[in-house]
Design a protein around this nucleic acid. Structure first.
Length: 225
DNA sequence: GATCTCGTTCACGTTACCTCA
DNA sequence: GTTGAGGTAACGTGAACGAGA
């Protein structure tokens, strides 16, 4: 089960930055930007923790504790937008995005790494939830079938022979299933196992619509009715 | 062509900081 | 004011990969 696009890194992400054109040789001044500087804009100043680059540089070798940056809403929005287009960034894209957001490329890289991790975590949680529901559905189905077996045994009828409404031929019992809604034996094939959750190359937003309740319902045996 | 080294990027797990109830 | 939980930026580490010697 693949979560991320197989060759997402090969895709090109175009971010239009007014007055900036990403060249193969990234500008060196990008690395000199203060990660805690207040971004130029009319919002988000309170979301930045005051600090300086020296603190962060020293924190990597046992210096003062690292300061934590809080991304502005606009930065988060643009990062999310980029993430929707591509889950990974090539160096050029990273540089351009970092310049546009007034962040360091390393910060953009870390954000994408964490975002991928969150996406995967959410995906795993949804899969877990779905499998739980699937297990419950199978348990209920199994219970009904056992009940039917008991009822048939109580009726002391012979081996279950059902005439197909289509061919008027006797059907083997192995092809029979029970509709959980109307509790009637149908000729629809039983569930052959947990359905695959096809969520590759999709964000957490789109996942919910794919694995959510409607998709689950569509896989219920009741569709045989 | 095979091997080694180096740099880069990634996933994964963890830590540290911040916010909020 | 204190505290614990949750969110998340940042870090450490090992694996994979490609480029160059």
């Amino acid at each position: 089960m693949s979560i991320l696009p197989a060759s997402s890194s090969s895709l090109e992400l175009t971010i239009s930055v007014p007055g900036f054109s990403s060249s193969p040789s990234a500008p060196s001044y990008v690395r000199d930007l203060d990660i805690n500087q207040v971004p130029s804009g009319d919002q988000g100043e309170e979301e930045w923790i005051t600090g300086c680059m020296e603190d962060e540089e020293e924190s990597s070798n046992g210096g003062p504790p690292r300061k934590k940056l809080r991304l502005t809403k606009e930065q988060s929005r643009l990062l999310e937008e980029s993430f929707r287009q591509n889950h990974t960034l090539n160096p050029k894209q990273k540089e351009a995005l970092a310049t546009h957001l007034k962040l360091r490329p390393r910060q953009v890289e870390v954000w994408f790494q964490n975002r991928r991790a969150r996406s995967k975590l959410k995906q795993t949680e949804m899969e877990c939830e779905y499998l739980k529901r699937w297990f419950g559905s199978l348990t209920e189905q199994n219970r009904r079938l056992h009940r039917e077996v008991e009822e048939l045994r109580a009726m002391k009828v012979g081996p279950p022979t059902v005439i197909s409404p289509h061919s008027c031929e006797p059907l083997p019992a192995s092809t029979l299933s029970m509709c959980p809604r109307c509790e009637r034996v149908t000729t629809t094939a039983l569930d052959k196992g947990p359905p695959r959750i096809t969520t590759a190359n999709s964000t957490a937003t789109t996942l919910s619509s794919k694995v959510g309740t409607p998709a689950l319902k569509s896989r219920q045996p009741s569709a045989a009715c």
